[in-house]
């Protein structure tokens, strides 16, 4: 049973990353109509920024948790201003191709300087050690990742669904021209939205650094799983992305325990099943 709970926890942690990443993808897709292929690379950058902050600037984990998403978010906004904005009005696929190119560049640069092996990132002192819950031993850091991700996801949901700013955002997603006519600076909102989505990815990167080490290709394979998560959940609903992300992480964790050979593929297999039964995705509207 210990092993089962351990895999469930791993599943929840992976689920947190799926949720944070697919949430960002959904927000970006809503505003920019772009599937951000660079999301995995920016997640990796988040982890590397945390690593640099610690090793070059002596800035600890807690500041990295705040600063890395801001730094990567600014990088993302520069990308949006200099490149992505020129794709407005073109076929969706150009956005995919452009961000794929950006992902190759970013990953290639990091691989060139850091190879393919992982760099260690220590768990902050306050979160070291573990708790005995009676039925399992819970490493505190892992519990923290799950709780904190959940809080961030829900905060993002609240921001978009319940606040004035979120209302503008949703309105601009539906009809940007009309929202502009009301005097709202939609291009700036688009830039900020991209920054927000990218920031969420970077945050996931910082969270994962102490668990999975910091590797140039850490986001490359992850992003493909997240695409499958997005196909399963659909990008129509914020809450849908969060729930699907966590649920698929848990299912993957359970698969690791019951049938480890399929743990790499279970998300893709589920995607196929969902497509066969409900092609629009679980929460998605007809595209």
């Amino acid at each position: 049973m210990q092993a089962l709970y351990a895999q469930l926890l791993v599943g929840l942690i992976n689920g947190s990353f799926y949720a944070l990443l697919s949430l960002g993808l959904a927000v970006i897709f809503g505003m920019l109509n772009i599937i951000n292929f660079a999301h995995g690379a920016l997640y990796m950058m988040g982890a590397f920024v945390a690593y640099f902050l610690l090793n070059l600037g002596g800035i600890n984990y807690w500041w990295a948790l705040l600063l890395a998403p801001i730094i990567v978010g600014i990088f993302g906004m520069i990308l949006e201003r200099t490149m992505l904005q020129w794709l407005t009005g073109l076929d969706h696929l150009y956005g995919l191709l452009l961000t794929f190119g950006i992902a190759l560049i970013v990953q290639g640069v990091f691989q060139n300087y850091f190879g393919s092996s992982g760099l260690p990132y220590a768990i902050p002192d306050q979160l070291k050690g573990g708790m005995n819950l009676g039925f399992m031993f819970l490493p505190i850091y892992r519990g923290w990742v799950v709780v904190f991700s959940l809080v961030v996801c829900l905060a993002t949901w609240y921001l978009i669904e319940k606040t004035q700013l979120g209302a503008y955002l949703r309105a601009a997603t539906e009809n940007p021209t009309l929202v502009r006519a009301f005097g709202i600076n939609v291009p700036r909102m688009i830039t900020l939205t991209y920054g927000l989505g990218v920031g969420l990815a970077a945050l996931a990167g910082v969270l994962s650094a102490p668990i999975n080490q910091v590797r140039p290709l850490m986001g490359a394979d992850l992003i493909i799983v997240v695409f499958a998560v997005v196909v399963i959940g659909g990008m129509g609903s914020i809450m849908g992305s969060i729930i699907t992300g966590f649920a698929l992480g848990v299912i993957e964790g359970l698969t690791k325990y019951f049938y480890p050979e399929a743990s790499n593929t279970v998300v893709f297999v589920l995607m196929v099943l969902v497509l066969l039964v409900k092609p629009t995705g679980l929460t998605g509207r007809a595209a």
Binding site: I35, L96, V230, L275
Partner: peptide, 27 residues
């Protein structure tokens, strides 16, 4: 499977399917 969705979803599905096959061939 993949023709069921259009546009950007089609790209993501074909990518995910090929990754599925990658892992199958790996094992």
């Amino acid at each position: 499977i993949s023709i069921r969705r259009q546009g950007i979803y089609f790209s993501m599905i074909t990518l995910a399917l090929s990754q599925l096959l990658y892992f199958i061939y790996l094992q």
